[in-house]
């Protein structure tokens, strides 16, 4: 029973971080129909940012989110304006390769600048936990989960209640119709990529105190982000949140009750199952 509850708790908490990565990807896909293979690398940039804010200025990783979000937004917006924008109408395989190329450029520039050394961010709470009826709840994960909840709620509100948010959603639903309605879809795309990048960067910041940072760290998370996004339904924020938590719990339970080496197969199998049964994802509206 301890094992079950313990796995459930850590699964949900780590799922929070996964959710943020997924949300970023889902917004980008929703608005631009581009699968962003550089998503993990953007997250990596956020991790380095957090690392240097911490080591150079002593800003706590969780506080540094306040700096990371706007910086990463600008970074994402620039990426969109300079590169992604040019291939919006291009063949899908060209879009994929462009983002792969951008990812390579990001990770290898980082390597040239900061060497390929692992950077480890050690805070006073990096390995501490709250005890709760025989269970341990990781302190850094618990805090990051709370931050995720706040950010997701704020983002959701922004998309649902504000005019700009509605314009973004309209663009996601039908680009041409949105344009006809007088929405500046180019601007919406920049906005969406900026938000997506800042979400990825935030996820990077939140995971930094418990993980480690190096130029190639992104690729594993890119793959995870794909799974989460498809699971939740491409373009759906609630879906990505749910998807993140589900993947977190499946991984955790898989490691506890199947084995740690097969847990990723379980994750991918669920992914395929969802694709087959409900390609639009758990929360997605069907679209052909």
């Amino acid at each position: 029973m301890t094992l079950f509850l313990q796995s459930l708790i850590s699964g949900i908490l780590i799922g929070g971080v996964y959710a943020l990565i997924g949300i970023g990807l889902t917004i980008i896909f929703g608005v631009m129909r581009v699968i962003n293979f550089a998503h993990g690398d953007i997250m990596m940039v956020g991790m380095y940012m957090t690392y240097f804010l911490f080591t150079l200025f002593g800003i706590d990783p969780f506080v540094s989110v306040l700096v990371t979000i706007p910086l990463m937004f600008v970074f994402g917006a620039i990426l969109q304006k300079l590169f992604i924008n040019r291939i919006l109408g291009a063949l899908p395989q060209n879009q994929i390769l462009l983002t792969i190329g951008l990812g390579l450029i990001m990770s290898n520039s980082m390597m040239l600048a900061f060497t390929s050394d692992y950077k480890i961010l050690t805070t006073s709470y990096s390995s501490s936990s709250y005890r709760l009826a025989g269970l341990s709840v990781s302190k850094p994960l618990a805090i990051s989960f709370l931050i995720t909840v706040v950010i997701t709620a704020a983002l959701y509100r922004f998309l649902m209640k504000t005019d700009t948010g509605q314009a973004i959603r309209a663009t996601a639903q039908d680009r041409e119709a949105a344009q006809l309605m007088g929405i500046n879809v180019k601007w919406m795309s920049i906005l969406a990529f900026g938000i997506g990048a800042s979400m990825a960067g935030t996820a990077g910041a939140l995971i930094s105190p418990t993980y480690y940072i190096f130029p190639q760290v992104g690729s594993a998370f890119t793959l995870k982000a794909f799974v989460i996004t498809v699971l939740g339904g491409m373009g759906s924020i609630v879906g990505a949140t749910l998807g993140g938590v589900i993947i977190g719990v499946v991984e955790s339970m898989g490691a506890a009750y199947i084995s740690s080496d097969w847990k990723d197969v379980v994750v991918f199998a669920i992914f395929l199952l969802v694709l087959l049964v409900k390609p639009s994802g758990l929360m997605g509206t069907s679209r052909t």
Binding site: T2, L3, Q6, S7, S10, G11, I14, V17, S138, I207, T210, Y211, V217, A220, G248, E251, S252, M253, A255, A256, S259, S260, D261, D264
Partner: peptide, 19 residues
């Protein structure tokens, strides 16, 4: 317990071992 390199969460594996 084998794990795939780079995994961020070993808590459930370690809990299992603890028991």
């Amino acid at each position: 317990e084998k794990y795939l390199k780079g995994a961020p969460d070993f808590r459930s594996t370690l809990t299992k071992i603890k028991t």
